[in-house]
Each structure stands twice: as C-alpha cells, then as structure tokens.
Design a protein around this nucleic acid. Sequence first.
DNA 1: ACATCAATTCGATAGTCATCGAAATGTTGA
DNA 2: TCAACATTTCGATGACTATCGAATTGATGT
Lengths: 98, 98
Amino acid sequence: MTKTATKRAQLSDRQVELIARALADPRRHAILKQIGEGDSMMCSDLRECQPISAATLSHHMKELEAAGLVEIIREGKFARLILQRHVLHAYLDHLSRI
Amino acid sequence: MTKTATKRAQLSDRQVELIARALADPRRHAILKQIGEGDSMMCSDLRECQPISAATLSHHMKELEAAGLVEIIREGKFARLILQRHVLHAYLDHLSRI
DNA sequence: ACATCAATTCGATAGTCATCGAAATGTTGA
DNA sequence: TCAACATTTCGATGACTATCGAATTGATGT
C-alpha cells in the first residue's frame, strides 16, 4: 500500500454517520470547500474568511476530525487542517451504492 | 435530452443543504437504501421494515421529498416513493468537487 | 352510508447542536 | 519571566428536530 493506493478504505456505519452529519452543517461544508481549494489550511486563516468565533471554529474542526474528513496537526501555536480526500471519496463511493 | 442524458442537474446551495441534512439522519439513510434496492417502494411496505410510527415515517418522507431525493406519488390510498438517483448523483458530483 | 385501512396533520416532548463569551492552555519572542 | 497570540475547554442558551399518540383526511369496498 503506497501513497497512491487505489484501494478504497471501508467506512464503518458509525463513520458514515459521522461524515454525513459533518457535511450537513453549512458552515462545515464551507470550511471543507475552503480547505479543499488547496490541500490544507491554517486555522487562523480560516477565521479570516468565516464569520465565527474561535470557539465555534474549534468545535467544527473537531467534528470534521472525528468524521475523518480532516487531519489536524499542530505547528507551533498554529493548527493546520489537512483535507482527507480519500475519506470523502470513500463516503461518495458508499452513497453511490444506494 | 433523453432518458440517458449525461448532463447533470445543477443543484442550488439550498438544495445541497437539504440533501445533506436529509442524508444525515440514519433512519432516512436506511429508508433510502431500502428504496434503492428496487427503484421504488410503497410506504406501507417500508413500515414493515422500519420500526417507526406512521407519523414519523410520514415526516421523513417529506424531508426526503423536499430534498428532491424521492418523488412521492399517491396510488389510491397508498403512497409510492421513487428514488431520484439523478439528484443523488448530482449531489455526489457536487461533493466530489471539494 | 358506513366501516376500514393508509397516510397526514397536530401538539407535545426530549434530545441534540451551533453558537457565544469567558476562562484556561500552550507557544513564541523579547 | 512576561506579554502577546492561537487555540481549546467550559458552561450556558436558543434553535432545531426526531419521535410519538391522537385526531383527521382521504380512498376503497360492501
């Protein structure tokens, strides 16, 4: 299994539910889109575009992370959000089987 | 434009939100899957598989219809739910552009 | 007309969640 | 050590929603 593995991750029912709920909030959807313009984004940069408090943004970040849609890595006092496209695509695969 | 048209419907931001919210509820997800085993299903048949009251099922049906994911047509005293796969796929397309 | 059955509407309730301000934590540079 | 800054945690609040039983609507067959 390499970085460019073609195999799709299997999602548990639980993770499917977490992803669906994560995507259901318009603000999180907007956050994901913004991160997706590149592949990652700093939390502090996000705040400049999203009219929400730091507390609320932190909350949304955790929801997205719990769903597996982003990975959060700290870089000093900053936090970088990295879009996990393979998880998103696994979710799309799952839905497409309906 | 034929039945096999390749063109995808454009979804408004509003409809994307309605679809995402509709998919976020596990029961509605289960209902969609069940309908998707065929292409349509009678409301009364759904009730036999889903352990919910008629009132709750009716509520979920309306949410799915409002999102455009199913069409509901009455046949006498029954209601048939028809899966709108093109809407689901338009939503998947939308998400895949993230 | 009437009884029956499918589905909807209504009103209420319990649980979830987005949001915030304030306080706390952790990091950096002076 | 200290001040400044990014992020997180805490506690509270208001809005939303899944769920139900009861009452209603609508269709069918007798």
